[in-house]
């Protein structure tokens, strides 16, 4: 299965260099424009520009082709309906709009890393930080995207298991295990988040900002430069075995060179 999440590739194209907010703004603006403009020539022009933009990001060929073929099929069906009714201009307009928007969305996906998108979502969510910490909203966005290929994988596995049991045509034999395993995956993911203390960090930051007395900078600002918070925690005396991140990864490096399998970066168990 081709995961849409694997579309991003680090490149040095102009679209890769552009900030995430600019790309999202461009996508929204063009989407609104294509919907409002019903002139087929303009729509075809916008579509060509979007396809060129997509090509400029040097996307992974196979995944992009699959996505575009699906879009072409839908566009063909939609415009076919208008052709049948004799509205040729509308048929061209609808097909061009659809292809253009999907091509631009793919261009944005191919040129924007998840981290950049996460930062963008967090920044956009800042005005509603009283309701929801921006970091949490960004994380929700990332989790939603993370869940998509996992649910698809669970569906494929359930379908194969149903086939193996001779239940090819049973919808229940596919839907039930997919659903229950998806819930199981969500629970595991939740536990992992909890264990890594990721959402808690956002909550704590919000609390500390609230707790900062008027006129004083928040805890985050007081902490100053990046990494200043690393080290012994309040009220906890670090034991002799406490290690720095550098120490830990130096150890990992030692093992990677000494004891790892022949080529762990490429070996497939």
């Amino acid at each position: 299965m081709i995961s849409m999440l694997g579309l991003y590739r680090p490149r040095s194209t102009p679209l890769h260099a552009a900030p995430a907010w600019f790309k999202v703004l461009l996508l929204v603006t063009l989407a609104i424009t294509t919907v409002l403009v019903s002139d087929p020539v303009t729509s075809v022009g916008i579509m060509c520009a979007c396809v060129l933009l997509l090509a400029s990001t040097e996307p992974p060929a196979k995944a992009t082709l699959y996505a575009m073929l699906g879009t072409l099929a839908v566009a063909g069906l939609s415009s076919g309906l208008h052709v049948w009714r004799g509205d040729y201009a509308r048929a061209i307009d609808v097909a061009a709009d659809l292809i253009g928007i999907v091509a631009l969305a793919l261009a944005v996906t191919c040129s924007t890393s998840m981290a950049a998108m996460l930062d963008f979502v967090s920044a956009v969510a800042r005005p509603i930080r009283f309701l929801l910490p921006p970091e949490t909203l960004g994380l929700m966005f990332a989790l939603m995207l993370r869940a998509l290929p996992e649910v698809a994988r669970l569906y494929l596995e359930s379908r194969m298991a149903a086939r193996a049991r001779g239940l090819d045509r049973s919808v229940r034999a596919v839907v039930f295990p997919t659903t229950t395993r998806s819930v199981g995956f969500a629970l595991q993911l939740g536990q992992a988040l909890h264990a890594r203390g990721i959402a808690e960090e956002a909550r704590e930051r919000r609390r500390s900002r609230r707790a900062a007395p008027p006129g004083q900078p928040s805890r985050r600002r007081r902490r100053g430069r990046a990494g200043a918070a690393v080290g012994p925690r309040e009220g906890v005396v670090p034991p002799a075995s406490s290690m720095s991140r550098e120490d830990a990864f130096a150890l990992l490096a030692g093992h990677a060179s000494d004891a790892r399998p022949r080529d762990p970066a490429r070996s497939q168990p």
Binding site: L5, Y8, M114, A115, L145, R146, L189, Q191, A192
Partner: peptide, 13 residues
Amino acid sequence: FLFTDPSAQLIMP
């Protein structure tokens, strides 16, 4: 905490 199934522990793409 390191879990049995790393897939459930990896969040980002």
